[in-house]
Design a protein around this nucleic acid. Structure first.
Lengths: 134, 134
DNA sequence: ATAATACTTAAAGCTAACTTTAAGGCAAGA
DNA sequence: TCTTGCCTTAAAGTTAGCTTTAAGTATTAT
């Protein structure tokens, strides 16, 4: 499979796939005789994993760490597990912050009428003030 | 309250507060006779709101849109409500993506032993392959 | 055979969101 | 009075994460 197909399947731009390969976020992809990339299932899965983590806000540098750790299998398993656990914790923290913001917006939406009246009141009093000052 | 205190209370760097003011993400802050900013409750609330939305991944440009809409009260209420609803939807979408990634990591953590064995297997077969080729 | 479309690389360019720097002003304490 | 530690601005610098460009090669369709 060439890079265009890989891009369509994973919904990651070809330029980004090349960039990910250069940055070692995905392993070096196989090439045919003329140097053209040939993506297999494994490659596709690695791209999809990278996308999923990026979409969830994991930084490139962390993703790289994670992958290097797993590529050097000699590294301590504890360290690998710890990284997984830590990243999960960070993501949960971020998810909770998002939930807070969602709740905040939901509240504003619910009280929209009241909210609008308050703003209009403020505006009226501002205009009154302006006239007084003239 | 000066910018340092405001920064401590909101946990937003002073430089960022100045930047937010310049970009109209928060309203122009009051100044004393010598031009030094004097933050009141309202200002603090606006900074905290901006922080909350930024932490949840809302872009500066969207935040600006949102605020401009509310500052020009003449703008259609429908438009304002629509923006709120749309932003809430986007955030929920993002939150769900995060949840997926969290689940993915949770799965890896749970099956860590198995996962490690598989990796070690792969490594062994790679090494075997290498020897064959010599 | 030629045109259109793919692919390749390295390097430069871009955008968002700050952050730092430089150069100076004010106010309080030793 | 001098030093310390705030404050101010405008402008330049930084970082992440791509994206675009330029220049060339290969494959496919007509």
């Amino acid at each position: 499979m060439n890079i265009k197909e890989a891009s369509q399947i994973t919904d990651v731009p070809a330029s980004t796939i090349r960039y990910y390969e250069k940055e070692n976020i995905i392993p070096a992809v196989d090439r045919n005789e003329s140097g053209v990339r040939d993506f297999d299932d494994h490659a596709i899965r690695r791209i999809s994993f990278a996308k999923k983590m990026r979409d969830a806000g994991m930084e490139i540098s962390t993703l790289k760490q994670y992958i290097n750790l797993f590529d050097n299998v000699e590294d301590s398993e504890d360290e690998q597990l710890a990284l997984l656990v830590e990243q999960k914790r960070l993501m949960e923290e971020k998810r909770d912050k998002m939930q807070e913001a969602i709740d905040h917006l939901a509240h504003k939406i619910e009280n929209f009428d009241t909210h609008m009246l308050r703003i209009e009141d403020e505006l009226r009093s501002m205009k009154a003030n302006k006239k007084e000052r003239l």
